[in-house]
Amino acid sequence: MPSLPPIRPEDEVRARERRGTGAFDAPAADEPDLSLFEYALRLGDDSLILGQRLAEWTGHAPSVEVDLSLANMALDLVGQATHFLNYAGAVEGRGRDGDQLAFHRDVLDFRNCLLVEQPNGDFAQTMARQFLFSTWQKMLFDHLTRSKDEMVAAVAAKAVKEVSYHEELSAEWVIRLGDGTEESRQRMQDGFDWNWRFVPELFDMDELAREAAMRGIGADLTILRDVYHAKVRSVVEEATLVLPSDQRPILGGRRGHHSEHLGHLLCVMQFLPRTYPDATW
């Protein structure tokens, strides 16, 4: 029988420093990379919440073809979320997987931007939100294909092809409805009026975003902003719409300060796994 390992002087030092943490018994595990965890959560939560929002349309869209489009886009987004959230869980190293993170966190722990949690409204409002988001996400993922984090780069490269579809499809609808009848134009304009105020948050570089960009994991969003605005402007002009004037930016989603809408969304999304915790497919 091997005897217990000898106690080395450095073990004693560490035990004194880390009193009460059990460090004497086990060598200190590598600290999880919590910035990477948070960054992956942001990416995953954006996709998850917008995917859930789009899924709300299933069976209610204006036509069967649109119904299929919205459900398929939802599927793409939930697919992205699965990869990002599983990865976030693995990085965190506390045994949480994507499902745990999706279904067993509450509003304050979600890190998605405010734009994706905005209510669907009518079809025009949904398309305005989709266009503003997908145009941004396409640029972001293009950038993230060169991320120094292999997993982030792989998911981005996989998803960017799907996101181009989302961008094209929503831009087509913005133009078709904007440059359509008096009523469809008004509804599209209302859709932009509702969602436009949540765009500045997409480009907000807080401390974590700056750190991620500096480490080469994330993107420096400030360099994408001008191109984004030019892209949006050209579609909006073709649609004969007017962009609302810039307002005071509304921030907070990345810190868990959400609008009232997210709680209602989570109620529906999380109902089953919370009510029947052992339910499996």
Partner: peptide
């Protein structure tokens, strides 16, 4: 007819 069909 539609950019999306029965599967992604």
């Amino acid at each position: 007819i539609s950019r999306f069909g029965s599967t992604p």
